[in-house]
Design a protein around this nucleic acid. Structure first.
Lengths: 167, 167
DNA sequence: TTAAACTTTCAAAAATAATTGAAACTTATT
DNA sequence: AATAAGTTTCAATTATTTTTGAAAGTTTAA
């Protein structure tokens, strides 16, 4: 396989994986493209490589920057903007975890707490509901805290964590 | 908040959360409904509660069973089928991890391996591509193995893991 | 202060994904 | 072996999400 083919395959695969995890395909593709580029890329070039419109590129670059995993760069003497991706994978994972926690898990936890604290009367049905949603609340809270803890680790948390699990 | 309202809120929230993680809303809603039901539920009742068609219910129940997190049950003297969800949350997490690994991560890893092993010639661009995709391959492989390891644990792996991380 | 270079916004269009519903299929009962 | 009870399938429809493209906005430079 030659370079261009491999690069394209990678970008497509990353895009597909993104879709399956609720991340818009183009957003994942742009991210993939920037991850494997050794220098900052202009919007023009992104549009060209991915065959997408200016609006699409602009909106998804903004989203990636909101996630904190893509940065804007300015080159001396150049008017246009260039973009680079966070290339450190530990850092990338931490940022994605943080964002998903903030945007999705925290709000879900709030609802889970609300519904798990209704007064359960005496029917078995209602008791089971309260019991199950309480357990779910505890579980999700614990999982979410685990992500927070990981965030606090320094370099190579994944490696360290794997060591701990193995032992 | 009264029971019916809480139950509905829970089902809607779980459905929305599913969507955000690439799981069809109805599938997540059916799962939510079964999780908080203290007894097996018929397709008829699922259709009624979620206001969905028979086809939709049938297809999503099949999908949930393929994931191994919903089971069919038969009641003596009743011709129709009833459904229950896996209610043990550790077991649920393990099964979801396994399926997503098998369906999405493993195939992605295969591609990652392919593209990271092209011959890198001498351009800095190609070298960076190979370097970055190799790192990504290692990272994803490690994360995926971590999920496998979790699978092997027995009860309450999440709690145990949290203890390990804390220490 | 004007124009050029570039970016953002957002309503409309296109693409994708989910849902319906009725026919086909399966299994149990008379 | 005919009918009834129930389930599955899938082409067509509907809903949702993504993408486009052009107008509006912004910034820099002459």
């Amino acid at each position: 396989m030659e370079f261009k083919e491999a690069k394209n395959k990678f970008v497509q695969t990353w895009g597909a994986l993104g879709s399956q995890w609720g991340i818009n395909k183009t957003m994942a593709q742009i991210h993939a493209l920037l991850m494997v580029s050794n220098e900052a890329v202009s919007m023009e070039d992104i549009m060209e490589e991915l065959q997408i419109s200016r609006g699409n590129a602009s909106m998804n670059l903004r989203a990636l920057m909101d996630w904190g995993i893509v940065y804007k760069e300015y080159k001396a003497g150049e008017r246009k903007e260039f973009f680079t991706a966070e290339k450190d994978l530990d850092e990338l994972a931490v940022k994605i975890s943080r964002e998903r926690s903030k945007r999705e898990i925290k709000p879900a936890l709030k609802i889970l707490k609300e519904v798990s604290t209704i007064e359960a009367k005496d029917s078995a049905e209602e008791k089971h509901f309260v019991d199950q949603t309480s357990k779910l609340y505890d579980f999700v809270l614990k999982a979410d805290n685990m992500l927070d803890k990981i965030t606090e680790f320094n370099d190579n948390w994944l490696g360290k964590l794997v060591m701990k699990i193995m032992k």
